[in-house]
Design a protein around this nucleic acid. Structure first.
Lengths: 340, 340
DNA sequence: ATGAAAGCGCTAACAC
DNA sequence: GTGTTAGCGCTTTCAT
């Protein structure tokens, strides 16, 4: 087993090989200063020959910037944080900055530890993320800019970015109204989740704007599961007075899929008799459902991109801003709400 | 908007406040050298007061170690890489090392770029991961240890770790045999995927060992989707000669779920008439299925832990090793294969 | 027990 | 044009 390379080459090694001084190597490789083209080339060749990569640590030490941002997540790599991460990486990667990941698994102690770690590593900024439906405690005043994404800091001095649950629900409900549904139900997760309540609010607002209202019997709150969706479908079918439910907005695609299954198996045609709209645009659920689900896309990847962009801007000296930014959701049309 | 902290304090600031020299601060804070307890305390107090965090960059520059490893992934945060990441983070975090994430999105150019980047940042080691079912090109000889996880380098001098598709398939098939199934089918993804072929091999091996064999008509290769599972179920039902298929090993939980749905809707009882085993142990599929799926767990989190541990060991001067390590899968029992 | 000085790898300011 | 020097923040001999 051959030993690892004879230790990493430095500017001095390159300088020696090219027969110049370290300072000249720096200038040559970074295209600064006035150098003879021939010299620049000679240095470049020497660097290539040695496989020289400038030590970013040394550079950072001088520049006072590491071109690194930390991502502190509470929800271990979940299915919601995933697309967010992708978005964050998109923007950061384009800005030539790398991403240091830390997963606190929701443990505050671990979080503190990671925060120290990231500060010691002198990250240029921080993205705090997680799937806490309710506001989380602030990290407090830090020497670097911080943006909370897909989670909300309880401190209004911080910048938080989430998607707009209420607007998403309005979008869904308005769509159901637009396709002529007269009695619309809302099936969702546990009341204790803020999302559940916000989406109900949006549903009610949209209905009210259309001169309709949400019958309390048509609000079914349970779990974020397919099984609950199937159960709820059964309940709704039995409530046909004065008119049958013909439109259902579900708080998640999982629930929506369960509802679709429940209805189909009870002989109810979707979307003809009942139109369904889900939430999340989670590919597996949306495509696996029969019929495929019309749903609300929270645009998580874009949220990640925006958060990262805000951060990059602040790192470059721009104003970070503060408060809670709500990004709009999109409606994605598929067969569960429209006759094909 | 209050300005950011009056620039980060350094050892010199602490030294000045404590009325000692920088060298003493270093010793005090790191518990090295012979210091008077009173001095040590004074320094500590000063550090606390200033909110001093030693600059890890400077430390790394000296030590020649960054306590950072790079994770180079081709498959952008996918559902397979996710648990792997979790495992990697588990081990690395415990070893006090941070994780620098880079997602090449399968673009070789981007991969090269990230590799340079990581080397410049002087990561102590590298995990290369992705969901390439077939061997990938090697990164070549690097000054740091590299382990390929959930992907295989085509160079045998590299260390690759994946789970054992064949063994997993054997586990599944043996289970079906054990619960008394006499005609076992294999429904899976595209032939071009190595996994598809390996799992078929495992199925055949297990059957052969039991004195049975795989009827060519019972090998149904299509896509990794629920829809394909339903289609396949329909096909298998029609092949009742000489005896009906009574056990199905599916190449993925998605397929298995589709098969379960297809069978149920055709009036076939699972598991009484037909037992089903899936692959992946993907919670959403496994739990969403009716009945819940018996499946093969590739233990991805553990794979990540092991890969990271090997890497840490090599970083600490241990032998990295080489070749292709196959980690065993586990069988997870649920209702789709056993009468409750 | 503590301070002074050198140096990790690099760049920038100033000589020549 | 190119070399020399100083210094980023820290640790570590080596004096004292």
């Amino acid at each position: 087993m051959p030993r690892t390379e004879s230790s990493t080459p430095t500017v001095r090694d390159v300088a020696q090989l090219a027969g110049v001084s370290p300072g000249t190597v720096s200038k040559a490789l970074n295209g600064r200063g006035q150098l003879r083209e021939e010299t620049r080339q000679r240095v470049q060749d020497a660097a290539d020959k040695l496989g020289f990569h400038p030590n970013q640590l040394a550079k950072s030490l001088i520049e006072g910037r590491t071109y690194t941002v930390g991502v502190l997540t509470t929800a271990s790599f979940g299915r919601f944080t995933m697309p967010l991460m992708t978005g964050i990486e998109d923007s950061l990667g384009a800005g030539k900055v790398s991403t240091l990941f830390c997963d606190s698994r929701g443990d505050p102690l671990r979080e503190r530890h990671y925060l120290q770690e990231l500060l010691s590593r002198r990250v240029d900024g921080l993205v705090v993320t997680g799937r806490k439906p309710d506001p989380r405690h602030s990290l407090g005043r830090l020497p670097i800019p911080v943006v909370y994404a897909l989670t909300q800091s309880e401190d209004d001095g911080d910048l938080s970015m989430t998607y707009d649950d209420r607007q998403g629900a309005e979008l869904a409900t308005n769509h159901l109204i637009a396709v002529g549904r007269k009695r619309i139900a809302y099936v969702s997760g546990p009341t204790r989740h803020l999302s559940t309540r916000l989406r109900q609010q949006g549903t009610e607002d949209a209905l009210e704007a259309a001169g309709m209202k949400l019958d309390p019997r048509d609000v079914l709150l349970g779990e974020w599961s397919e099984a609950w969706g199937r159960t709820a479908a059964g309940i709704l079918i039995r409530q046909a007075e004065p008119i049958p439910v013909d439109g259902i907005f579900c708080g998640s695609d999982q629930i929506a899929r369960g509802v679709a299954d429940g209805l189909r198996e009870a002989g109810v045609d979707v979307p003809r008799q009942v139109a369904i709209v889900g939430f999340d645009n989670w590919d597996v659920m949306v495509q696996g459902s029969r019929p495929p689900l019309t749903t609300i896309d929270p645009n998580l990847t874009m949220l990640g991109q925006l958060a990262a962009n805000r951060l990059l801007n602040a790192i470059d000296g721009g104003e970070l801003g503060s408060g809670h930014i709500l990004r709009p959701c999109d409606l994605v049309l598929r067969q569960s709400s429209m006759s094909s």
